[in-house]
Amino acid sequence: MATPLSAERFLDALRAEGVRVVEHDGWRTHNRNRKGPWGPVHGVMLHHTAGRDSVALCRDGMNDLPGPLCIGVVAKDGSVHLVGYGRTNHAGRGARAAYDCVRAESAPPARPGPDTVDGNVHFYGFEIENLGNGRDSYPGAQLDAVERIAAAVCRAHGWHAESVIGHKEWTTRKIDPSFSMAAMRTRIAKRLGGAPSPATPGPAPACEPFPGAAFFAEGRRSPVITAMGRRLVAEGCARYEVGPGPEWTAADRNSYAAWQRKLGYSGGDADGIPGRVSWDRLCVPRAA
């Protein structure tokens, strides 16, 4: 049982753990506290977004579920977007058995049981950008960020890794996140066994940053286009007879349109010209 961290102490904990933070306007006071209490807090709950435009959605919510829908969104590149702080609409009701296990810092039950406890009161909620369909991958930088944010909160409160729970372990209504929570808790426990450490900087981010839609014009040649094509092949979206190669062609556009459709886009939103959200989802490796 604990009082929630202040927004500033929470931010300091993330940064000390090496989390790459993106602060959105007003996040410190954007919450649902007027609808009920936040705290005492007992743990961290992890989710996957299962949709597009994750940061905006998690900040603003929907007509039937007002935002914020979490405290932070973990993007594919490992950045953590802070969109709210306090009570958020992320957990909903869950099982008393799961709640008791988190409080006791023991493994969650195999079957959660009836939903009787309001998790929005008792958990820090984080959304992880992923479609959750078993085909959308979690890049290494993203999983590293998940590990770090969970460890940061646990370290600040003096909690163990068993204080971290998945939404699917909280209620039988949910399937997120779509990775092994046991494996993630093992990673968190290992990190908590040592001192906080910054992320090890590399020469470049794991994924190629979005070059802008205007980059994908007829006649453009770049190793980025080759790298993109190889990722489209790996995702089963290739529409190439030859290649992929460094020059932007109709085959690249047709292949990218297949990727957009795979993500659920249609009509003019699946025109084959990369946009930031679909590009970030593809996670094109840095081109030499």
Rank of each mutant, 00 (worst) to 15 (best):
D64F: 10
A110T: 04
H90F: 12
W159S: 11
P68Y: 15
P223L: 09
A183L: 12
R191W: 05
R93N: 14
P4H: 10
P246M: 04
P40M: 02
S180L: 05
H167M: 05
K168P: 00
R59F: 07
A238R: 09
S180R: 06
G72Y: 04
P108H: 05
A91D: 09
F126G: 07
R220A: 13
A287C: 03
S163Y: 10
R155C: 06
G194R: 05
G166E: 01
G84D: 15
A238Q: 10
Y240M: 08
M181N: 08
S54R: 03
L143Y: 01
D53W: 04
A91S: 15
Y240R: 05
P201G: 11
S163H: 13
E218I: 07
D136H: 13
N133A: 02
A199P: 00
A156R: 11
D12G: 12
E218Q: 12
S266P: 01
A288I: 01
W27Q: 09
D77A: 01
P285W: 03
I71A: 13
W248Q: 04
V164Q: 12
A151Q: 05
Y99W: 14
A98V: 04
L143P: 01
R253H: 01
C283R: 00
G140H: 05
A250N: 11
A182W: 08
G92V: 09
P66W: 03
A141D: 14
V277I: 15
C154D: 07
S255D: 08
L263W: 01
